[in-house]
Amino acid sequence: MTWRGTLTLVLLVAAVITGWSVWQQRAEPTATVTASTRPSYLLHDFEVVALDGEGKESMTLRAPKLAQNADDRTMSIQTPLFLLPDKDGQRWEVRSKTAWVAADNSEVRLRGDVVANSPPGAQKPSTLKTEQLNVFPDKNEATSQVLVSVTAPGSTMQGVGMWADLADKRIRLLSKVQMTDDPKRR
């Protein structure tokens, strides 16, 4: 065998070994999981009345747009108005820039310019303002971890963090509480 034949044979064996080695070390294709970006449904300019387990109204929602996430069944809402009934059947009015609703409707997260007004004609009318408010309709409770301002005739209270019992119309500020009292405005 000539040197050319030997060199060709060596190069051929090296090419086969290299090809086999590359084939064995190839990466497994990775499965690409993509979350759907399309909602399962959209509502425009709507009103929804949600009922509790006993068939009573737990909340009413009015908004210009609602989108349900197809993956986890949560909802995002633009400029919602929530009407939350108290134990007397009167309704708190709660507004915000956006809202997120859990798939089981057990929690509503309101964000941006949140304003909650006590029912019209309430004995002690009050207005609550904050940037974040979490509402739990089944429990008739609301919480916040940020600055909250509560205004009633003749007084203003501010604090960081809040817990509210919407049925009994009780609000408790949790820390850094300040109160301004103006008896003339009552």
Results as ranks from 00 to 15, higher is better:
W100I: 04
S96E: 00
G53A: 10
R95E: 07
R73W: 11
M59Y: 15
D138N: 13
P39Y: 06
K56M: 14
S126A: 14
Y41M: 05
A122S: 14
L128P: 00
S58E: 13
L42D: 10
R62A: 13
M59H: 15
V114S: 01
S96I: 01
F46D: 09
S76N: 14
L66P: 02
S58F: 00
D88Y: 05
L83M: 13
A99C: 03
D86V: 08
H44I: 03
D138P: 04
V101W: 01
A50N: 08
P64I: 06
S126L: 15
P125V: 03
S76Q: 14
T127A: 03
N134G: 00
E54A: 15
A122W: 02
A50D: 11
N117L: 10
W100T: 05
S118Q: 05
P125L: 04
P125S: 03
D86F: 09
F46Y: 14
L42S: 13
A102D: 13
S76T: 15
P80R: 01
Q78I: 10
A122H: 07
R91E: 10
P85M: 08
V115Q: 03
T127Y: 01
R109G: 00
K129M: 09
I77L: 07
F82H: 02
Q68P: 03
R91K: 12
T98V: 04
V101H: 01
Y41W: 12
S76F: 08
Q132D: 09
D138F: 06
G121F: 01
G121A: 05
Q78K: 09
P39F: 06
R91M: 07
L83G: 02
E93T: 15
T98S: 08
L42I: 14
P64L: 08
Y41E: 06
R111H: 08
